[in-house]
Write a protein that binds this DNA or RNA. Structure first.
Lengths: 197, 197
DNA sequence: TGTACATCAGTGAACGCGCGTTCACTGATGTAC
DNA sequence: TGTACATCAGTGAACGCGCGTTCACTGATGTAC
């Protein structure tokens, strides 16, 4: 079969996007190449025309997932008037829709544990993606503080948001899950608004 | 072979303890029953004399892991004078030793993502274990606030600690990892000491 | 214009491997007589 | 006291299955002549 000039690039892009969703939904370990390629409308043998190994796909998919999250959080912040970006960020991150759709959500919350066991090739795009997201949050903090202080606080608030989202997904009771989301938003906001020391 | 009366119970206990370490270190998915039983000095066939399925082991091991963490955090708090329990808890949770030994550490930080995909049988002991740990933290908060407010704040602080520990394990740079631990301790302490509204 | 050929994204059988689970069997000891 | 037997935690071969990876092959199209 002879294809259009950009056909292969397009296929590559589709596989990465699909993988970034599957990895977030099922975890890195649970995604097989055969079902993945089948979902993309292909057979498994073609995989190695696009990637040298499964690990290369993981690295690309992590980057893609965090880029999506960065974009959607940046949009949520950009949509509201000056000064309301902090609440917009927190509300966009910690809500029941994000809890229920990990496949479209933050790859940090979905994959951070598995990242700890991955080689540098995979951890690098992860680290960069997380830092970019935390930087957006740092920009929404109240004025004041040094750049380092602002990043430290943003990392703290982001850790809280990520941890609370994970707990809301894992707890064995719908009421407890909602309570974690709601109190998480309040506590994150309180910490983010703490005066600079 | 005929064994001592409590021999089987002892073997059962050893398998659960070993599994709780392996699960935390390698993730639920990566632990096979054959290597696990071999580590316990047994062959894989004997597994089903102790557990009806792998899932039953997972549920028991989660409970065991969280009980260990509860005990070690309770001890850390009990060792210091009245009023210093909060700092003791935070410092015991967010440090480089805990970061580097997930197999002996908090099962929340190590397994919360995988819990989200497990059946109720496994999520129940997880939820109970996390609540017990958060209760210990709530008891260390400064006086004031309703019981609900205290638990909400404790959940916020614990989310921060857990998220920061995970990020410190996943980031691709030793300096960044240390910075996350240190700023995490400070931010967690600031949030925990916020006056009650 | 018509024909032969090169291209190359994608196909699918095959590789060795480890997985969870089942089950007929082992064999050292305590018990019954 | 001596012998036959029941117990049962643990053994290890076997089951079907999906995994990541390799590789000889396909076949519709664009290009060369």
């Amino acid at each position: 079969v002879r294809y259009a000039i950009d056909h292969k690039e397009e296929t590559h892009r589709i596989i990465v996007k699909l993988a970034s969703s599957r990895f977030r939904r099922d975890g890195l370990a649970a995604v097989g190449l055969r079902p993945l390629m089948a979902d993309a409308g292909l057979t498994h043998g073609g995989f190695y025309a696009h990637f040298s190994s499964r690990e290369e796909l993981v690295a690309e998919a992590i980057g893609e997932a965090l880029r999506e999250t960065l974009n959607s959080l940046s949009e949520a912040v950009a949509e509201v008037p000056e000064g309301e970006g902090l609440e917009a960020f927190i509300n966009a991150y910690l809500n029941s829709l994000h809890r229920d759709r990990p496949d479209r959500g933050c790859a940090g919350a979905a994959l951070v544990e598995e990242m700890a066991r991955e080689p540098a090739e995979v951890r690098r795009p992860f680290t960069e993606g997380i830092e970019a997201i935390v930087s957006v949050l740092a920009d929404q903090l109240p004025p004041g503080g040094s750049e380092a202080e602002r990043m430290n606080r943003a990392f703290g608030v982001f850790s809280l948001l990520m941890g609370a989202l994970q707990l809301s997904r894992s707890v064995d009771d719908a009421g407890k899950s909602s309570a974690i989301l709601q109190s998480g938003r309040l506590e994150a906001l309180s910490l983010a608004r703490l005066r600079w020391s």
